[in-house]
Simulated assay, not measured.
Amino acid sequence: MDKKFSNKAINFLKKEGFYVILFICLCIVATVALLTAKNNKDQSAQLQKSNAIEQKQAKQTAKTDKNPSSTYDNALQVKKNSRTSANAEQKTSKEVANSMSTSFQKPVEGIIARGFSEDPVYWNSTGTYRPNLGYDIQTDLGKPVFAAMDGKVEEVNTATQDGVEIIIDHQNGLKTVYSNLDPNVKVNKGQMVKKGSVIGIVGKSTLRSAYEKYGNHLHFAVLKGKEFVDPGKYIKY
């Protein structure tokens, strides 16, 4: 009986085998198509969800740009204020520098007879060579002498080789020295003076340059710290 059943099965496969295989292939194709369609549907749904999220974020960004936060405004204000402050400081520093370079008034009306020199120069009065650490300003006897800038009278010396001498501390690192004055000075030690105020008159009290060819003069010097510097940095004749 088994042999007979087997023969029938073999005969069936021989006759209908093609259709069986075709049916199996169709089932496989259908299964693959179904799976592919499902996968495409899932991807489409994911893409739509992603697009929706991007659109929502774009709307939020546009709203933020239209209405900036107070923090952003504050940051801009701080940045603007910082720039304004820096510009103001630069302007102030520049104004101070300009003021320092042009703030001296001429101590006396006249002309420069002997300029500043750190190298030794010849002096007729003593027949020697020595530096001239200031200006010798040729002028008339009795000419008024002015404070070059606001300050405090530090010393009034009446017995120096350069004659009667007044030293004014301008309290900014600079001091001015006025020598060869008449003994009848107009200020006292410790007195506060204003720029342009009369502190004395040109005299003949110097020993060191009494016999120079240029005659009557005011010796004017500038101290920066403890060093004499060229007065030409602060006044122009």
Results as ranks from 00 to 15, higher is better:
226 K>A: 14
46 Q>W: 00
200 G>V: 01
56 K>N: 04
36 T>Q: 15
14 K>G: 15
51 N>S: 14
213 K>C: 07
156 V>S: 02
17 G>P: 12
144 P>E: 03
227 E>N: 07
86 A>R: 02
68 P>I: 00
51 N>A: 06
89 E>R: 11
101 S>I: 04
196 G>I: 02
91 K>V: 03
122 Y>W: 11
103 S>F: 05
113 A>V: 12
49 K>H: 14
213 K>T: 07
229 V>H: 06
187 V>P: 03
32 V>G: 11
91 K>F: 11
189 K>W: 00
50 S>G: 10
92 T>I: 11
220 F>D: 07
18 F>P: 01
129 Y>L: 09
127 G>V: 07
86 A>S: 14
92 T>F: 04
148 A>D: 08
49 K>Q: 14
102 T>L: 09
49 K>I: 03
32 V>H: 02
25 C>R: 09
186 K>R: 06
22 L>R: 06
237 Y>N: 01
89 E>W: 08
80 K>H: 03
167 I>F: 04
55 Q>F: 01
68 P>T: 03
165 E>L: 05
48 Q>G: 04
221 A>E: 11
26 L>W: 11
24 I>V: 14
109 E>S: 10
169 D>M: 10
101 S>C: 01
73 D>T: 05
134 G>H: 08
120 P>K: 11
224 K>W: 12
201 I>F: 13
51 N>F: 09
38 K>P: 01
51 N>C: 01
175 K>Q: 12
4 K>Y: 04
96 V>I: 12
159 A>P: 08
46 Q>T: 08
13 L>F: 15
